[in-house]
Amino acid sequence: MTLAYSPNAAALLTATAAALLTALIVPVVRRLGLRWGLVDPPDDRKQHTLPMVRLGGVGIVAGFSLSLACTWAFGGFAELPPDKDQLIWTTLAGALCFFVIGLADDLFALPPLPRLCGQVLVAAAVWNQGVRIGSIDLPFGLGTSAAGLPLPEGLSLLATVVWLVGITNAINWLDGLDGLAAGVSGIAAVGLLSVSFSLSQPAAGLLAAALAGSCLGFLRHNFNPARIFMGDGGSYFLGFALAAISIVGPAKRLTSVSLLLPLMILSLPLADMSAVIMGRLRAGRSPFYPDRRHLHHRLLRAGFSHRRTVVLIYAFTQWLASIALVLANAEMRFLWLALATAVLIAVLVVCRRQMQEEAK
């Protein structure tokens, strides 16, 4: 059975299927995790006070994969050229490999170096299969051809591996509060979905739709107070998927606009990771040393509640994604969305200050 192909309809079908499937599968995963004792105990660095199942990534992966399978079964990929079709399955395979690395860490507490080595190897394998940053457009028409200036193989490999591994770990490090990583990833996925379609990249758009739906379905069970955590398996999967989608779509060629869009959409977790690494290095510690330097920890110490901290970071991410959409589409509706989000951020900050003054 196939449907008349429409990119918008295929994206809607994919996102809806992903949300429903994830929302239905996650409670099953939680029950099994409780039965088998696969829980994350509380400690001084964590926010939860009760043991929590941290295998929610299984539900995210299942919802994402099954939704793409449904889209394929109904002919959603029918109009894609074979090379784009292959990129979808290569991205899915790479994301599954990253998920396995994270799941192994959830179950066996792997040291940081083996995890990093595994991520680099998978990213290199994905690059070898065509998910790569392959060329760069120079400003002022200095590119050698309409296809841009091809990057040397070594430089292309380095740029792709750094991009994939960097964003993956940025999302992983953001996963410190209920619903934070899933919400930020969902907002970023919606931004990549819009940008991909505006740049005529339907393959990336379908992947982003599946990811956005999976995040929405998982938030049903993960928003504060959370009933389940995604674990490193889930955050690695989301991070790699976001990074790979941006390569398959907007950033496949490094142009002044296409590279800027995913960078803007994902700039908050990237900036947070960079600041944390620099702070740890200045303190003479390993970049992987666990501490409370992350943005969400700082907002909590500033007096924001758990939920307000999460909503504020959501708002910042939405604001950055809206600006990226303005650059990609030059449409006023996205400019108004950016302005409305900026007003929301201001209201949250002002309300917090008023509460602090009243408390004094």
Rank of each mutant, 00 (worst) to 15 (best):
A340D: 11
L312N: 08
M1L: 14
L151T: 00
R220S: 12
A251Y: 07
L299W: 01
L155S: 05
R253K: 14
Y236Q: 14
T2V: 15
L268T: 09
L216F: 04
L110K: 13
S196E: 05
T14I: 07
A69D: 04
L320D: 08
E153M: 11
Y236L: 13
R282S: 11
M273N: 00
I313H: 07
L344E: 13
V26H: 05
W173E: 09
R307P: 06
L20R: 07
I345P: 02
L13R: 11
A95T: 07
T255I: 00
I101Q: 10
W127P: 10
G233K: 00
S246K: 03
A251I: 06
G249A: 00
R298L: 08
R308F: 15
L206Q: 09
A104C: 15
V161E: 00
T144A: 09
G191A: 06
S145M: 05
G33R: 00
M264A: 05
G134K: 04
L348V: 02
L270G: 01
S235T: 07
N329S: 15
W89V: 03
C97F: 14
T49P: 12
P139S: 06
G75E: 01
L164Q: 01
A188Y: 00
P81V: 13
V162F: 13
R292F: 00
P42R: 00
C97N: 12
I88P: 04
C70F: 04
L199G: 10
P202S: 06
R280I: 07
R280L: 10
G134P: 03
L216T: 05
W36V: 07
G166C: 08
P225C: 07
D178S: 00
S274M: 14
L238N: 04
A330P: 02
R132F: 13
R227C: 09
H296Y: 15
I133E: 03
V343L: 15
A359M: 14
V257Y: 11
